[in-house]
Each structure stands twice: as structure tokens, then as C-alpha cells.
Nucleic acid binder design. Structure first.
Lengths: 119, 119
DNA sequence: CATTCATTTCAATATCTATTGAGATATCGA
DNA sequence: TCGATATCTCAATAGATATTGAAATGAATG
């Protein structure tokens, strides 16, 4: 991950429709969603949707595959973790006290909410 | 952290000068840097710098304080961790296998590089 | 209290980005 | 192959954002 890539990703995520698409696809999981389904969820015309999806794909945040008549889009998770790493890496060189709280804030988000007992 | 805030932060970080300022301030630590020093580092005219700094401040990524004739800017670290949390939170609801690698990628970045022995 | 220094504000302009609608392309089934 | 479906591409327009230079503000110093 270099600066140029990071800028592209931030630009991609700075647009409401695109941010929603990314979050939708992240939640949709590895199977992804057809462009048409995304368009319905976003209430966006096909050309507009296509514009945003290709923007996201260029930034490396989503990938696409053809499946019959549909084109299926799915999130590219490593891009997100690389981005986060890019954001935090520099700050941690000599300032680990800064990033440790960030990690602490993140950790609970990755615990599977399986039972009511939290211990 | 809501969607609107996240959009503002991504927009703030999607501009080359602003991303560099944020990284500079993150590395500068809690003491921060005077606007003039930042301007030198960025080779940016004062009005241009001011435009970007106020953009960053509005997004909550930096804060400022007056110190004599100078205005000192410093990074707001919690905003970054909130942003990361916002990005990852949804995806982890039901998809912890997605976020765990992200965290694994992050963890080493927060280890203080103290000695040559890496074990 | 006038001068200098540090930074911001403002207005004009240039550049970049998003939306729209029409048409092109690709796939499938009859 | 024809028609229907799904998606993309293109060109025009509208809207948002960045840069510039000049002028204003606020704080320190003699």
C-alpha cells in the first residue's frame, strides 16, 4: 500500500453511494451481490451504479465476476486491512502508545457474539 | 461515529496535501506542529494550508491551539480509531473471519521495534 | 501605539467529480 | 437467430472542491 493507493481508496470511500455499497458488500460476505441487487438496494440507475462500482473496483475495494447474465461484485477484504495498516503504521514507529488504544477499540468488534454470557 | 462523519473523514483524507499533513502530525506526536512548520514541510502557501487545515479540523482529524503568535495543530488519534472501528464493525457482525486477519495484520505495527532480535 | 510576524478570510478561477439519458455490448432462452 | 435481460460506455451538464493572491485579523515587541 503506497500513498497513491491510499488516496484512491479514501476518495472511493468519501462518496455516500460508494461507502454504502462497500458496507453492503462487506456484510454480504464472499459470495457478493449482483450489480442489479446492489442497484435496487441503492435505488440508483444502472449507469450511475456502474460508475461507482468501477470506481470501487479501480481502487481495489471490490472485485467482480460474471455469472450468467449478471455481474457479481464482492468486497476485497485485504484492501481494507492494508488501508488500516497504512494509516497506523507510521504513527506506531516510535508512538506505539497511540496505536494500542486503536487496536483495543477494534478487538471487541471482532468477537463473535455467540452467547449471552460475555465471559 | 456515523456515516456522515465517516464520509467527511474519508473526504478529508482523500486529498494528497491533507493526507500528508495528517501523517506528519501523527508522527509529530501530541505536541503537534505550528501551522508555519507544516506549511514549510508541505511547501504550501499559507492560504492553501489554512484551507486544508480547517478542512481537517472540521472532520475532527486535527485540533488546534494558539501558542503566542503561532497556532499549533496536532492529530486527534481517537478519530482515527473510531473510523477504523466504523469500517470494521459492520463486517464483523457475523463475519469475524473477515476482521480477524485485519487485526492480525495490524498487531505487528504496534509492536515497539526495540531490539534487533525479532523473536 | 506602530510595526512585524503568523495565520485566516475572501473572491475569482480552474479543475475534478457525479449524474443523466441514450445507445452499445454480452448472455440466455425460445 | 430474435427478443428479452443485465450491465456497461459515452458525451453532455451540473455540482463540488482546490488554488491563487490580496486583504483582514490577532498577538507580540520595541
Amino acid at each position: 500500500m503506497n500513498e497513491r493507493q491510499a488516496l484512491d481508496i479514501f476518495a472511493a470511500l468519501s462518496q455516500e453511494t460508494r461507502l454504502r455499497i462497500v458496507r453492503l458488500l462487506i456484510n454480504a460476505g464472499p459470495d457478493g451481490l449482483a450489480a442489479g441487487s446492489i442497484g435496487e438496494a441503492m435505488e440508483a440507475a444502472s449507469s450511475r451504479l456502474s460508475f461507482h462500482l468501477s470506481h470501487l473496483e479501480t481502487a481495489g475495494l471490490v472485485q467482480s465476476r460474471r455469472e450468467g447474465r449478471s455481474i457479481i461484485y464482492s468486497a476485497v477484504y485485504p484492501t481494507l486491512s492494508d488501508l488500516i495498516e497504512f494509516l497506523l503504521r507510521d504513527c506506531c514507529q516510535g508512538h506505539p502508545e497511540i496505536c494500542t488504544p486503536a487496536l483495543a477499540a477494534l478487538s471487541p468488534c471482532c468477537e463473535k457474539p455467540k452467547g449471552p454470557a460475555n465471559a
